[in-house]
């Protein structure tokens, strides 16, 4: 497979502090990689190395097939970057920002003006185009930021926490624009601390914590790696709560009673066959059920399990599942 981003064992230290200990990742051309991790995990430093802004202390990386250290200048012709702080000039207008960067990308005065008008239109910024960016809302600034990194029609875009601090509407609008860009064939590496965002946008997720990759896979693979489903049973009669709990306990769960016994939940493994056993047992015990739901673990739970595991790696091993 063709990869637009390939990083091998990247390491970056700042004085005493090691920001990135060992990060390797690959982004196939035309796909979206979500780099997921808590604050301080090394996401931004990784992106800055890939975007030629800092040189790795060791390890190698290629972007658009070019080495980010030896060929930094040529890499820059193929990339677009948005930082977690919006990298636009607050004193210039939106249009002036776009024209400035267009001219630096050698589109010429007229070419830059045309491209600026196009992008302003596409990002719904035409009305605000001639106002200083300092007067923009957070969502408008991020949209402009994304627009500026598309001026040169780059092959690879790095989005460093593109929606941090945005309201839900602006976030959804930005997600939509990112999806359009993916549809147009751009390769995207996106960092985020929001699991929902990684889940929504990424083809592939790399989870990093304390400068190391701790898990990777598609969103589904990551959810499967946790491997347990949450079963939720709603009862018609709270008096049956204990009986229902006993049924779940027999399947190896540790049931919890909620809402005064109206709801019984447990984490179990075994998928649909398990569900049919549970419902059969409940019918046999004469428990009247209004609803049975099976919920896959959310990416949040996967994330907490992964990062929690590294945080307490010296603690007791997770309890072994009983079949």
């Amino acid at each position: 497979m063709e990869h637009d981003v390939e990083a091998e064992h990247l390491v970056k230290r700042f004085g005493e502090h090691t920001a990135v200990r060992d990060v390797s990742l690959r982004v196939p051309a035309g796909s979206v990689l979500g780099l997921l991790g808590p604050n301080g995990a090394g996401k931004t430093t990784t992106v800055r190395m890939l975007a030629t802004l800092v040189e790795p202390d060791s390890g190698t990386a290629r972007v658009a097939g070019l080495d980010v250290v030896a060929d930094a200048r040529r890499v820059r012709r193929h990339i677009g970057l948005t930082g977690q702080y919006a990298t636009v000039d607050g004193l210039l207008t939106g249009r002036q920002n776009l024209v400035l960067l267009g001219r630096l990308l050698r589109l010429g005065r007229r070419g830059a003006a045309r491209r600026a008008a196009e992008l302003l239109e596409r990002f719904q910024l035409t009305q605000a185009a001639d106002r200083p960016v300092g007067t923009y809302s957070g969502g408008m600034r991020r949209r402009l930021d994304l627009a500026t990194c598309l001026i040169g029609e780059p092959r690879v875009i790095f989005l460093d926490e593109p929606t941090t601090g945005l309201d839900p509407t602006s976030r959804v609008l930005l997600w939509q624009t990112i999806r359009e860009q993916v549809a147009a064939g751009t390769t995207i590496l996106l960092t985020t601390q929001y699991l929902e965002e990684a889940d929504q946008l990424s083809d592939h997720i790399v989870v990093i914590d304390r400068g190391r990759v701790i898990a990777e896979g598609t969103p589904d693979q990551l959810k499967d790696s946790v491997g347990r489903e949450q079963v939720e049973i709603r009862l018609a009669d709270p008096g049956h709560a204990e009986t229902a709990a006993a049924v779940l306990r027999r399947q190896g769960g540790e049931p919890a009673l909620e809402q005064g016994g109206r709801r019984v939940t447990a984490t179990l493994s075994g998928n649909l066959p398990m569900i049919s056993r549970v419902t059969a047992d409940l019918a046999e015990a004469g428990v009247a059920v209004t609803e049975v739901t099976l919920r896959r673990p959310s990416l949040d739970e996967v994330f907490f399990q992964l990062t929690g595991a590294t945080a307490q790696s010296t603690g007791p091993a997770p309890r072994k599942e009983q079949a």
């Binding site: 800055r48 975007a51 030629t52 802004l53 200048r73 040529r74 820059r76 012709r77 990339i79 677009g80 970057l81 930082g83 702080y85 919006a86 990298t87 636009v88 000039d89 960067l101 630096l104 990308l105 500026t148």
Partner: peptide, 13 residues
């Protein structure tokens, strides 16, 4: 102190 320096440095200039 401004992100714009990063933006300029990511350009082929």
């Amino acid at each position: 102190d401004n992100g714009i320096t990063d933006r300029f440095r990511s350009l082929p200039i």
